[in-house]
């Protein structure tokens, strides 16, 4: 059976972890490589690195980080944040990233999705979709959630997968940061509409939330940041819990 995946997300700025990390046994809580190793040992199935650096030296630091991560861990990882060209992606994949995620650049230039899928294959193209309810409809936001677009979320996900995205990272901005649970209806509808795996994101607070998003939400994977960073949920315990709920996970 294909397992449901648990994916911690690491926010990176200038090669360092942004959010505070309350892990014991970490010598340097700001070191992404050390945190990645710790998550990998706890049983994370994949990692996502989101680079929020907005400087010109960005690419060099990121490539350097990706190489170090690829050297250190033996599970797959995705890199996202400000990626906007086929060239950027080529360098990151050559440096050991398994997948890249695109968001703003794909909305501004949807042909980028086709170009990446044709050049590198759909399996490494993750379309990140930040969505928020506005006047009763689900709208796509870009620029890290700052800018609304005219794109309707479900139509955009359909278009993105038709263009070649192999996976969707769906973040509910309405749920993000609330710790009240994932957006179940939104995730379920997405999972039924598009024929690629859905990574649900936004709202994780308790272990039950993960169970809900896998069962009722039909998600293939669930992503979270703070509950893992601050040690509120341990991945190893989360997986044991899910297994007891008869949800297939890798133990």
């Amino acid at each position: 059976m294909l397992k449901k995946r648990i994916i911690p997300c690491l926010d990176i700025k200038k090669g360092r972890i942004v959010k505070g990390v309350h892990f014991i046994n970490l010598q340097d809580a700001g070191d992404p490589v050390e945190l990645a190793q710790a998550y990998s040992e706890q049983g994370a199935d994949e990692l996502v690195f989101l680079d929020i650096t907005a400087t010109v030296e960005k690419r060099k630091t990121l490539v350097d980080l990706v190489q170090k991560v690829a050297r250190a861990i033996n599970i797959p990882f995705t890199v996202g944040g400000g990626i906007s060209s086929v060239e950027d992606v080529g360098i990151l994949l050559d440096s050991g990233a398994d997948k890249i995620s695109i968001n703003t650049a794909a909305v501004n230039n949807p042909n980028l999705i086709d170009a990446l899928a044709n050049r590198f294959g759909s399996q490494c193209v993750v379309l990140a979709v930040d969505t928020k309810q506005c006047n009763g409809s689900d709208i796509v936001f870009i620029d890290g959630g700052r800018t609304p677009t005219k794109k309707k979320t479900f139509e955009w996900m359909k278009e993105g997968t038709e263009r070649g995205a192999g996976e969707i990272l769906l973040t509910s901005m309405d749920h993000d940061g609330t710790k009240n649970g994932f957006a179940i209806e939104l995730t379920r509808k997405a999972s039924e509409i598009v024929n690629v795996p859905i990574i649900a994101s936004g709202g994780a607070g308790k272990m039950e939330h993960f169970a809900h998003v896998f069962t009722e939400g039909k998600a293939d994977a669930a992503l979270a940041a703070s509950v893992f960073h601050y040690g509120e949920i341990k991945i190893s315990e989360l997986k044991k819990y899910l297994s007891k709920q008869n949800i297939e996970v890798r133990l």
């Binding site: 059976m1 294909l2 192999g166 996976e167 024929n195 690629v196 293939d220």
Partner: peptide, 27 residues
């Protein structure tokens, strides 16, 4: 099924020297 097949899945009936000395489920 959803395409691509992405993620961790279990091997059934592994019979190869490649899988020797692995006592746990091969995922």
């Amino acid at each position: 099924v959803k395409i691509p097949h992405i993620g961790w899945n279990t091997l059934q009936n592994p019979k190869s020297v490649l899988f020797s000395d692995i006592s746990e489920e091969i995922c």
